[in-house]
Amino acid sequence: MKFGVLRFPGSCDEVDAQLAASRVGDAVLLWHGDRDLQGVDAVIVPGGFSYGDYLRAGAIARFSPVMESVIDFAGDGGLVLGICNGFQVLCEAGLLPGALLPNANRRFTFRQVSLEVVEPGTAFTSECEAGERLSIPAKHGSGRFHADEATLDGLESNGQVVLRYDPAENFNGSLRDIAGVRNEAGNVFGLMPHPEHAVDPLTGSTDGLKIFESMRTAAEGARA
């Protein structure tokens, strides 16, 4: 299992994502200016502030050369995980529904959040139980998930809402407490909290590892 982690100018969590993915497989960094995905089995779009987050978070990064390859890769059913800024990039690229707006609390906020696993059967949560709570840190200024009512209804009825914030911890004001969504085909997933920062007992929780382990299970199943 080989993960590829994108690196944009302004990425800052790509090395943590690479280290986290290295716990379950091989992981390489992929430069934003390259189109070659080096034969990876899964792509991770990491957190940070790609291209300075100019205009809107993720708005410029989605037009980078590597993203053209990621869009093709996703179209062919490849696994793509977007974390924080990566989630924003995937929404801007149209690979995921909705948009991420500035936090309702008007602050860049960094805190551990409790996430409910709404959909345990996905390629990104198969190692979780239904209703399980994952303790994972979130740190962002623009994480308020927004989509129109019809889209939100569709996401819920299609099982595309994968993770929700505990309602008491929804500091960014995401509609319907949505913390993570997947696309209709189920091979693209984005979330604002950072599973790559919750993989070592030294820093508290190892719940984030389950996301990477689930991806390995899905990739190995696809290859078998």
Binding site: L55, A59, F63, E92, G98, A99, L101, H146, A147, D148
Partner: peptide, 8 residues
């Protein structure tokens, strides 16, 4: 396509 995000 770029200056605005028509969703929001």
């Amino acid at each position: 396509k770029l200056l605005a995000n028509p969703l929001v």
